[in-house]
Simulated scan of single mutants.
Amino acid sequence: MILIRDIEYQEIVTKSAIQIENGTDYQILWNKHTIENCWFNYKQIKIPSNTLIALNPNDVFHLPDGAQKLYRISFNQPKEESIKSFFNTAFCNQVNEFYSLFKIKNKEIVNEVDHIVRQIKLSFFNTKNTPYFKTHYLLNLVICLLHAKFLDTVDLKVTQFKKLFSFEEKETHFVKYYGNQLNTPPKELLRQFTKKGYNKPSAIINNFIVLEAQKKLMASSLSVKEIGFELGFDDPAYFSRFFKKYAGISAMEFKKNHKQLLININNESIGK
């Protein structure tokens, strides 16, 4: 029997800006109302009402100033190999984006998510409920997430492509590596992505390498050179040019700008 441990429930009611740094847990946020000017993995976005937000470990999510209410369920990745792939698929970022959020358009699914979140909430106040009860409702919530996701991204090959991302070795920077893993020639991958309206596979790879670099810049004390080495770049100068090309600014400018963003968020919170 599957048991997911350390499931936690929290209602986030904000009257000032807050930051959620995911750390080692997975999290699902259920947002009922439109939120303007969020920052998700260093990109400014608008989140519509009735949206499920999937946070992977080390994702960064900033809520703006203003009264907001979200429901947050966090948990550790299950140990059972049989279900790891299920969760990895659900939490894999959207193909063209740096984050996972899915608008629920079907009213019946909205009602189902509301019901599941209520049941998870009640389970924390009812001592008779076992950990398996919480696991049951969490799995149902992830199924709703998958349902919303595959209405948006129905191509399994594309999802498998994203799940393979790992940039420690230089060979993983190239489409050929992923084509070999998926038994699909690079030209065929390009054709499939173009047909679905996605970016080129090479562009997606490069953008996600930069995202990994951004996370490391903000979450560690590593130098730009050291981060480049961790991501498979032998030449620090080339890595610096690569980062600036795809991020639009240098690595040090990025770190300075987003440190200031965090300072502003903290100051807003203290000011309240």
Rank of each mutant, 00 (worst) to 15 (best):
M1D: 07
I4V: 11
I4Y: 01
I4G: 09
D6Q: 06
Y9H: 03
Y9F: 15
V13T: 09
T14M: 12
K15S: 06
I18D: 14
Q19L: 13
E21C: 02
T24S: 15
Y26Q: 00
Q27H: 03
I28K: 08
E36H: 13
E36C: 03
N37A: 11
N37H: 07
C38A: 13
W39K: 03
W39G: 12
N41K: 08
Y42F: 15
Q44Y: 08
I45G: 09
P48A: 10
P48D: 11
T51W: 04
T51C: 12
L52Q: 05
I53A: 11
L55I: 01
L55Q: 15
P57N: 08
H62I: 13
A67Y: 12
A67W: 05
Q68W: 06
K69V: 09
K69N: 03
Y71A: 01
I73C: 04
F75Q: 05
Q77M: 10
Q77T: 13
K79F: 06
E81N: 06
S82N: 04
F86K: 01
N88F: 00
T89M: 12
A90D: 15
N93Y: 12
N93H: 14
N93K: 15
V95E: 08
N96I: 00
E97Y: 05
Y99H: 12
K105E: 13
N106V: 09
V110S: 03
I116K: 02
V117K: 06
V117Y: 05
I120T: 02
F125P: 07
N126P: 03
N126A: 02
T130K: 11
T130P: 01
K134I: 00
T135P: 07
H136W: 01
L139Q: 09
L141Q: 03
L141C: 07
H147D: 07
H147F: 12
D152T: 15
V154M: 08
V158W: 03
Q160A: 14
K162R: 14
L164D: 07
E169L: 07
K170Y: 05
T172N: 10
T172F: 08
T172Y: 13
H173V: 09
Y178R: 02
N180Q: 14
Q181T: 00
P186T: 00
P186K: 01
E188M: 03
E188P: 06
L189S: 12
R191P: 10
R191H: 15
Q192Y: 08
K195E: 08
P201E: 11
S202N: 10
A203K: 13
I204H: 09
V210S: 06
L211N: 00
A213T: 00
Q214W: 12
L217T: 11
L217M: 11
S221N: 03
L222H: 05
S223F: 00
K225M: 02
E226F: 02
I227L: 04
G232N: 00
F233V: 09
P236L: 06
A237G: 13
Y238I: 10
F239M: 06
S240M: 05
R241E: 14
R241W: 05
R241L: 13
R241T: 12
R241M: 14
K244W: 12
K244N: 11
Y246F: 10
Y246I: 04
G248F: 08
S250K: 05
M252Y: 14
E253C: 01
K255V: 01
K256C: 01
I263V: 11
N264A: 14
N264V: 04
N267W: 09
